[in-house]
Amino acid sequence: MTFRTALLLGSLFVLAGCSSSGNWGWYVIDPTTKNGASNIRFLLNGFGATILLSVIAAFMSMAIGMMVALPGMSSNRWIRLPSRIYIEFVRAIPLLPMLFWVFYGLPVVLKSIGINVSIDAFWGAIITLAISDSAFTAEIYRSGIQSINKGQTEAAKTVGLTYGQTMRYVILPQAIRRILPPLANQFIYIVKMSAFASVIGMQELTRRANELVVTEYRPLEIYTLLILEYLVLVLIISFFVRWLERKMGSDESK
């Protein structure tokens, strides 16, 4: 962590140093002025939406990923097939086109089959992020579960456990420790990809920065702050995950 902190302070220094050149106009987010303070408040208020969006999408992605991963490991190829198709298909769609499709297209599709719902920017972004990420989560689960020795499943069978019990009590508790690091990676990825929600009007960090740039004409300062906002968010997540890994003993090399 000390290295990260040093890096953070270092980059701040470099940025601050630039201000002497006269190209910077930090007044736009100077908390000592009334306008700057209100601008900062406006920008920081995006944290709530970004975090909420990411957390809900991540949990949905983990749930969908499990529902895709488990049949994907069946010995029956017809059970395996839909899961394979889902993963290959979803993985191939870039996030932004999928976001547009879900936001503008999905309501039309749903209406045509008699389901009349409007999808707002918040849920549009969550659905897109969750689905798009679930293909990767599913593959992480699969690699984690398949990394557990086959003898574990066999031993579970010989003591009478059903498939569900074997997963729940024997395989997943062991797999979860191994997949925690890549799963955390995916979560960080979701947090960053949530910036795309700005294009459909979701008031999260990036959208707010964009809006402020339009009124204040200071892209350099505002986007710099935006990047730092994401940096702080991701560092907090990293820190939390490290703690979780230690607690769960993910590092089996110890």
Binding site: G151, A155, G160, L161
Partner: peptide
């Protein structure tokens, strides 16, 4: 093929509790 994440006692009780 013991279950490495469980204690010895839990290894022995898992089957009887969950299956029986």
């Amino acid at each position: 093929n013991l279950f490495p994440h469980l204690t010895i006692l839990q290894n022995l009780t898992l089957g009887p509790m969950k299956a029986r």
